[in-house]
Design a protein around this nucleic acid. Sequence first.
DNA 1: AGTGACTGACTGACTGTTCAGTCTATGAGC
DNA 2: GCTCATAGACTGAACAGTCAGTCAGTCACT
Lengths: 206, 206
Amino acid sequence: MAVKEPVKGTGAAVADARRDQMLAAAARLIAERGFSDTRIADVASRVGASPALVIYYFGTKDSLLTEALRWSERSFYAAVEEMLHESASVDARIGTLVSWCLPETRRRSDDWGLWFDLWVQAFRHPEVKKDRAELDQQWRDLVARVVRAGVEAGEVGEVDVEEFTIMWAALLDGLVVQVALDDPVVDGALARRIALDVARRNLGLR
Amino acid sequence: MAVKEPVKGTGAAVADARRDQMLAAAARLIAERGFSDTRIADVASRVGASPALVIYYFGTKDSLLTEALRWSERSFYAAVEEMLHESASVDARIGTLVSWCLPETRRRSDDWGLWFDLWVQAFRHPEVKKDRAELDQQWRDLVARVVRAGVEAGEVGEVDVEEFTIMWAALLDGLVVQVALDDPVVDGALARRIALDVARRNLGLR
DNA sequence: AGTGACTGACTGACTGTTCAGTCTATGAGC
DNA sequence: GCTCATAGACTGAACAGTCAGTCAGTCACT
């Protein structure tokens, strides 16, 4: 099921397209079933290719899966960066960040699963760990940039930007965990409210 | 290595002791290698028994591992509860909570791994999810109790206890993630400082 | 003719689980 | 106090399923 046509075209373009197909398929599968229950045969069939081809491209299963994890996280942040251009005021931007992490309607309910698996892998594999740290720094930089812009625009009161950023990013992570795990008292709406409240209070907004 | 003697004694006591041995061994192994890389043969040899015996007690591998996860989390919270009796003021108690989650000297560096694996399992297995939610509620109740005691003692200013608790618990989780994953900018000391700052500021302490 | 994407058919290792049967302590019956 | 049957902890050996990875070779394009 969901078997795609073999990639048309020739030369190096084929290889690139294939790699991307496979990374995307792997990411989806990890999200659906979890890292350790994702088989290369699954990835292969999603892409309409043989398991051998997957190995042909990635060498080992582990290499495929960890690359897929990083690929997915990277595209997540790229998407936020994009989205951020659309809001103007600090308050609106903060809102954008929040509803990106804690969307009103769960985009796809298993997206969260990737985060958890990413953390598990990062915990034990130095390369993944390094990657995750860099991406997270990128995320914090994004938050910091929003705040600093607010300070310059005079919308934000006095804050230690560095420290606020670290605190608030951690808070978001923690809230995401609760919501992702369907905590009966911490639902999406409450989590969003708390995230916004804390930001506004600390930044002296409103 | 680390093979223990078969349990002495007779009757039902043997069975109980064995189950506990196995749960403890499994928890350690999960922490060391991760959930999906823990084999029943490993658990068996740590306990000085045959793989067959492990199945004899737990029926399936999965049942053993998820029970081990819950067992371990339960004992974690039990230990905090214990420890809390020793501090008196709100401020001291808050400090206790923080340094329990983010200890100065990492107790055993792989303890964190269990949390991540627990989250991964909880995300996909409803029973584990329910268990985790309950335990987490217990943890929040603990925090809330500390805060309420502070309010009654007049040490704490005006707060929405419910909301503070949820917020602060999530913050701790988020900070734990960063520290556990060796984030280069969020080390243990900084995380502790942030956690304490936020608590003090929100509770009007100091 | 050559290069590189691609595959089918294997295989070899791993490992959860089963099973038939051992060993030990207990306790009922004498 | 002794015997013997029973129960339940325990195991070695085998089974069966699963998969990652290999390999020799095909096919299509240049």
